[in-house]
């Protein structure tokens, strides 16, 4: 389905995740973040960029994987993206949330 975010029409799924990463911009990320009362800082963007790179490489995202990567410690990750840090950060990053096969 289509949705207008940051004055741009983009394609999203029923839960509001972008379905085409090519449509993602920093402005879109910033506006999605406001839905979660998150004001984006450099630290947020660093994590978002890392997530985008990982997904681009085809790697699976997990909380423990993020801890091991050293990009951010887990407590800070939860503090930056409260309420399910992976599902919130992936939505802001314009990539699919981690899924199973069903």
């Amino acid at each position: 389905m289509k949705k207008v975010i940051a004055q741009t029409e983009i394609n999203v799924n029923e839960e509001g995740y972008l379905t085409d990463f090519a449509q993602w911009t920093k402005e879109i990320g910033t506006e999605i973040a406001t839905d979660y009362n998150i004001e984006m800082t450099d630290r947020h963007w660093e994590v978002v960029k890392w997530i985008q790179e990982k997904v681009n490489e085809g790697a699976a995202l997990s909380i423990r994987g993020i801890k091991k990567s050293g990009v951010i410690d887990i407590k800070s990750f939860y503090a930056l993206f409260p309420g399910g840090p992976l599902k919130v950060s992936t939505k802001i990053a314009g990539v699919p949330k981690p899924k199973s096969c069903i």
Binding site: G84, C101, I102
Partner: peptide, 9 residues
């Protein structure tokens, strides 16, 4: 660890 028991629509 996922957002549901079923994650696909």
């Amino acid at each position: 660890p996922l957002s549901g028991a079923f994650t696909k629509e």
